[in-house]
Design a protein around this nucleic acid. Structure first.
Length: 251
DNA sequence: AAGACACGCAACCGCAAACAA
DNA sequence: ATTGTTTGCGGTTGCGTGTCT
């Protein structure tokens, strides 16, 4: 169920604004999505340059554009994981999301509020009626799955610069990707944007061994002692991987 | 067929922490 | 040390769609 876009225009004149620089609100247009995706692909998250607030850009990226997001509905098994984690962590949605690769805090929060909580309340009510406990068992096997997910992410960790943006874009070998989702599923945006990056499809096209791959180090639960400052890492990032002027036409 | 209601999702809001000047 | 800005988080709202009456 995707809401029909209500953005009347993409010129910035909507929402009562007449200036070209007026900050937009409301639903994102496909054009804005594409521009945001390209921005992050080339510059990382430190440079929000659209006529949107940084918060809005970040949210759109986190909840919708990230290529590593799962597009399929939350499965029964994932639901059980959410219930289990919510029991142990409370409403710390970002923490729960970090343990569920491909899922966002907003997605989990919505799922909880709209479905699970309602169901648990009904079950609790029924439980009070017949004296049975409505609390779902803290499914031990689900915890095993969560832990194994983290273990997979931590397998063979290598030092990364601590000052990297939370979301970074790297050239990775997907074949040996250590269990992380490649996000190549339905991400037509990803394919289109990465291919316009260098014009070299052998590096950018989805399905090849090397693709532009988006990571969340938060999601990986990277051990803090492996984070280290690498002098010049960010400079190299900008100057070698994504030269700033290569995307100037998109702004 | 049409109106009322419920549901689900995307996005906004307010706050706090982190960071930069 | 102080102030302003940015980022991240959880709670909440608004609206499109599906279902019921």
């Amino acid at each position: 169920m995707v809401r029909k876009p209500s953005h009347g225009d993409t010129t910035g004149a909507g929402n009562g604004g007449t200036e070209a620089t007026k900050e937009r609100k409301g639903l994102w247009s496909p054009e804005e999505d594409e521009r945001l995706f390209a921005q992050i692909t080339y510059h990382g998250v430190s440079t929000w340059r659209l006529r949107r607030s940084g918060k809005s850009c970040r949210l759109r990226w986190m909840n919708y554009l990230r290529p590593d997001l799962k597009k399929e509905p939350i499965s029964k098994r994932e639901e059980e994981v959410i219930i289990s984690l919510q029991q142990s962590l409370g409403n710390r949605w970002s923490t729960i999301a970090a343990r569920m690769p491909g899922r966002t805090d907003n997605e989990i929060k919505n799922y909880w509020n709209s479905r699970i909580r309602k169901r648990l309340n009904a079950a609790a009510k029924a439980g009070r009626d017949d004296g049975a406990s409505a609390e779902p068992a803290p499914a031990a096997e689900e915890k095993v799955e969560v832990e194994s997910t983290n273990a997979a992410a931590e397998a063979g960790p290598m030092p990364i610069p601590a000052r990297f943006p939370v979301f970074a874009c790297q050239m990775l070998d997907v074949v040996g990707g250590g269990g992380m989702s490649s996000g190549s599923g339905e991400s037509t945006l990803s394919t289109a944007s990465t291919q316009q990056n260098s014009g070299d499809e052998s590096e950018a096209s989805v399905g090849d061994s090397n693709v532009i791959h988006f990571l969340s180090f938060d999601d990986l639960d990277y051990p803090a002692d492996l984070l280290m400052d690498v002098p010049g890492a960010m400079d190299a990032w900008e100057s070698e991987l994504y030269p700033a002027n290569s995307i100037s036409s998109l702004n």
